[in-house]
Amino acid sequence: MVINVVEWTRLEPWRVARARTDRDETVIIKWTGPHASRVRDEPWRLRTEAAALRFLSEDLGAALAPRVLAVDLAEGRLVLEDLAPRTALDGLLRRHGAAAHADRLTAAARARGELGALTAGHAEAYYRRRAALGPVDPAADRLGRVARQRESGMPSLPGVPVPGGVEREFGAALAELAEPGPFLVLSNGDAEANNVLVHAAGPADARLIDFEFAGFTHALHDAVPLHVPGPGWLSLGGPAEGEVYRRALAAGVPQAEDDGRYGRGLAAACVSYALARLTRLAVLDGRPAGDDSRAQLVATLEAAARTAEGALPRLAGWCRQAGAALRRRWPDADVDFGALAPYTPRR
């Protein structure tokens, strides 16, 4: 497919632009360049996004993400369907608050669950498509952060000992995530609200974007932002969105209806995420008092503890102790999160 661009506008700060073609249609263009994480090389990311989006639209017939209109891997260019007038959910939450966008929050949670439901059991088909574009390691996709945590072990925090029972539950949590079984689904690799586009008014009609780090992994990784505040937030809403996600996922992964199995996976994913954030302790220590990143880490640990207290009680207790220790360490982070409005942004 030949697309002739007549004008374009870069969408800062990403290597993304909205372009107008000679047919007076708009498209989204993505191109390669250094990525802040430097975890994967540039061509790898572009190949992954092209494969994942074509897998969804062409192999599964799903309308959950933008369609690929053209791709030139040699030149490092990817042309995608423009999903406007949809806009990023996180921007709406920041501008108007969560109460104004309850329906859009629900739609976003449902879309994440539907992605898992539709892709469960199709890993081999995806990796055939992905491998045709270049080398890929399915085990690395599946393990992700888990591999690093297995190697480094439980993080340490002065004044918070790690008894053997906590270590054992930590190992059990990582084992749960490493072997997803029926919960092995495609994730875009970042299920935060900035990667969900919705209509600002009327039916939300949510779409998921940014599949550069896509891969098959444990479905409950994508549920974490519904239970634990991500980097941009100090608080979340109630449990409603989490249940919406679970019901949508269960349409393709019936094991999600098993309270015990689902609870173990969710607890493992939430605690794994929170402990990974704790490794930033030295960075946050160096920031000035009042920096919201400190309170955000406390909120993350305490939310993970609430989610895990039934399935991983020792790890949940350790996360609560860690949160309390950080409140003492950083008096500016001793915040009453229960008094905050849902989706209060981190400054």
Rank of each mutant, 00 (worst) to 15 (best):
E58Q: 13
D72F: 01
R47N: 09
R45Q: 15
A65F: 05
T26P: 02
I29H: 07
E25D: 15
P66F: 04
R45L: 15
G33K: 06
R67H: 11
L73K: 02
V71K: 01
G76S: 00
R67M: 04
R54V: 03
I28Y: 04
G76N: 04
P43E: 01
L73Q: 04
A51P: 09
K30E: 02
D22R: 07
T21G: 10
S57G: 15
S57D: 12
L64N: 05
P34K: 09
T48R: 14
R38N: 10
D72E: 12
T26F: 10
L60R: 09
S37R: 14
G33W: 09
I29R: 11
E25I: 02
A36M: 01
D24N: 14
T48D: 03
W44R: 12
D59L: 11
D22Y: 05
A65G: 03
V39G: 07
A51S: 12
A50G: 03
A50K: 05
L73S: 01
E42H: 13
R38H: 13
S37P: 05
S57H: 11
L60T: 06
E25F: 08
L53Q: 10
R40D: 09
E25M: 08
A50F: 04
G33P: 11
D41Q: 12
R40W: 13
V68W: 05
R23W: 07
R23S: 13
V71D: 03
S57F: 04
D24E: 14
P34Y: 09
L53S: 10
E49W: 09
E42P: 07
R67I: 02
G61Q: 11
H35Q: 08
I28T: 02
D59E: 15
A70C: 03
L73A: 05
S37A: 14
E75S: 12
R45D: 02
E49V: 06
T32S: 08
